[in-house]
Amino acid sequence: MTERIRLARPDVGEAELEAVAEVFASGMLTMGAKVGEFERLLAEACGTDDAVVVSSGTAALHLAVMALGLGPGDEVIVPAYTFPATANAVELCGASAVLVDVDADTFNVDIARVADAVGPRTRAVLAVHLFGRPLEWEELQTAVPQEVVLVEDAAGALGATYRGTPCGALGLMGCLSFHPRKIVTTGEGGAVTTDEPELADAIRRLRHHGIAPRGDFDIAEPGLNYRLSDILCAIAIPQMQRLEQLLAARERVAGWYTERLEHLVLTPSAAEGDRHGWQAYVVQLDRRDEALRALREEGIEAQIGTYALHHLTGYRDRGSFPGADRAFARALALPFATTMTEDECDRVAAALAHFV
């Protein structure tokens, strides 16, 4: 039987096992030294003053919206094509997610439509670097009034750069994810990056029930338990120490795919001067559903790109979004990992060629 090609495979091994064993030996399983070490490495990688680790990328988005004090009556602009967590974080705070269409080729939000969507109740934009492709940030900055806060959903963009600036350092805050399909994983985990000490302190309080990290025990406002344990931070630290190596490996695999597929399907890329984060390798083709079924039948794990939010019950009747419709119908995530071989890319490309 032909060996199955996984959709994703975390690049973890002996170094991560040793780091976890060190935590077990210390007896400090949560809120210990590994949390701070991981946060320092993240802040350094993103070029920010602070990084606050939390229990998931969704938690990072939720706490970022909470830290801004957004709630009923406020509107936050969200791409119509993104993982639902982006919009969920807004709605869970009582604010309204205003969906805006995307560029069907890049998957990122259509910035001209962002400008059109800004209204008197618009407080923020959750700007997604989808699948690791940096959003055109300077265009976004000029498209919205200065008082509208820009927050990055950089869940798949750790290591990506926009014109030389790391994703995670472009907005007032950046939200990261460490799900197993991401370049650095903790299994489940996330982080908020920022240069604003008041926001970093707010995130630290809110992730820990609202308890101030310094001073006497007090809760000025209710918080949540969104902490990330030392065990999970320990898994990530060796990966952070070789982040450049991991990204280079993903770039190599992406290059193999592009060489084989660019004349057959629409392949992903970054704009000139930017560096893609390569959270996933997502192509587009007309016979997507047929291709998806056939790849799976051949032992090749594949998946749709992500979701057009207005196709979901909770976000219906919020407008027409043809770009999101097109992306939702055509996007196909191929197997993608640092450990993939050229032979595996050949096999995937050959299987996909039948549908073009």
Rank of each mutant, 00 (worst) to 15 (best):
M1V: 12
R9L: 12
E16S: 14
F24N: 03
L29M: 11
L42S: 08
C46A: 08
G47W: 02
T58H: 15
M66N: 13
A67V: 11
L68G: 14
L68F: 11
G69I: 13
L70Y: 15
T82E: 12
A85S: 15
S96L: 12
A97L: 14
D101Q: 10
D101H: 11
L135W: 11
E139S: 06
Q146T: 07
L150V: 08
V151S: 12
T165D: 03
G168C: 13
L172N: 12
C175P: 02
I183R: 12
E188Q: 04
E188S: 09
G190P: 07
T194S: 00
I203G: 03
G210W: 03
D218F: 06
E244Y: 02
A249P: 09
R250F: 09
V253Q: 00
V253L: 00
E262A: 06
L264M: 10
G273L: 00
G273D: 04
D274N: 08
W278G: 02
Q279K: 00
Q279F: 00
L292T: 07
R296Y: 00
E297G: 09
I304D: 04
R318S: 01
S320W: 05
P322A: 10
D325T: 14
R326A: 11
A327K: 10
A331C: 09
F336N: 04
A337S: 15
E342W: 08
